[in-house]
Write a protein that binds this DNA or RNA. Structure first.
Length: 265
DNA sequence: ATGGTAGGTATCCTA
């Protein structure tokens, strides 16, 4: 069985009907994982999702901020929300898919502007959530589960994941304390970075470009903030991966573009 | 070095 999984930070799902339709038409994922839906569950565009061929949905949102959702053509079961740092934010949805896949859809805090946890509580929150996730997955190490972890992790871990490594070393999303924490989380369970397995780490690769650029494509000051990781039990199932860069140039775009993997189960 | 845009909510916060 072939399964295509796409992750996309929509930056408000209610503003993205056109982009959502293009993702379905041009990428055709079996499972679409969303972040920053920015809407409470009752106001989620369920009718649109249903029309686009996703009868199975795990929508976990809140008013105005954050929010994650899994839209699926395949039966989805055991929906669960995980909470971190004692906060009620909707940042982590878990569910089961056919083939015994356990899917984790994550939205890690952006972390504010100042990369100092002593004076910036948003950065402290980001680091604390990374620590808690690391402990959670370290506890599960070796359990043999078929995990897919996707989402906007808000960190660009590799030098080639940002447009200018040296210039971004003190910019939140690429500071050493963050990249080390993200790689430690990855290592704690033995996840592989699926996208970098297919697209070599030597190659520049971004999934996000700021809205503030005059010309995002010309300046190309991007960062790779959106990720798809596979557990050891699933690493061999990987058949392909892609980042849909053109989506940043679509009408009414999100600032993030869809990232996709193909798995053979 | 600075400020730039977008979205949600309600006039300011977050990214």
């Amino acid at each position: 069985m072939r399964v295509r999984i796409t992750t996309w930070n929509a930056n408000s799902i209610r503003k993205r009907e056109k982009a959502l339709r293009r993702i379905v038409a041009e990428i055709a994922p079996d499972v679409l994982c969303l972040q920053e839906t920015k809407v409470e569950d009752a106001k989620f565009p369920h009718a649109l999702a249903s029309e686009l061929g996703f009868p199975y949905r795990w929508v976990h949102g809140q008013k105005g901020y954050h929010g994650v959702a899994v839209l699926s053509k395949l039966p989805l079961s055991e929906p669960r929300a995980l909470k971190w740092c004692g906060v009620e934010d909707c940042r982590h949805a878990v569910c089961r898919l056919p083939g015994d896949i356990e899917l984790h859809d994550l939205y890690i805090p952006a972390g504010g502007d100042i990369p100092d946890p002593e004076i910036n509580p948003k950065f402290a929150h980001k680091l604390a959530m990374l620590r808690e996730l690391r402990a959670y997955f370290a506890d599960r190490r070796g359990d043999g589960a078929k995990l897919v972890l996707v989402g906007d992790l808000n960190i660009a871990p590799l030098e080639t994941d940002v447009w200018n490594h040296r210039a971004l070393l003190d910019v939140v999303s690429h500071t050493p304390v963050e990249t080390e924490a993200l790689l430690a989380l990855q290592k704690a369970y033995g996840f592989t970075d699926a996208v970098r397995t297919v697209i070599p780490p030597e190659k520049k690769l971004y999934t996000w470009w700021s809205y503030r650029a005059r010309d995002w494509a010309a300046s190309d000051r991007g960062r790779r903030l959106d990720h798809i990781w596979l557990s050891p039990a699933l690493a061999g199932a990987l058949r392909g991966a892609e980042v849909r860069r053109e989506a940043r140039g679509w009408e009414e775009p999100s600032d993030h573009v869809p990232v996709t993997v193909d798995l053979e189960l």
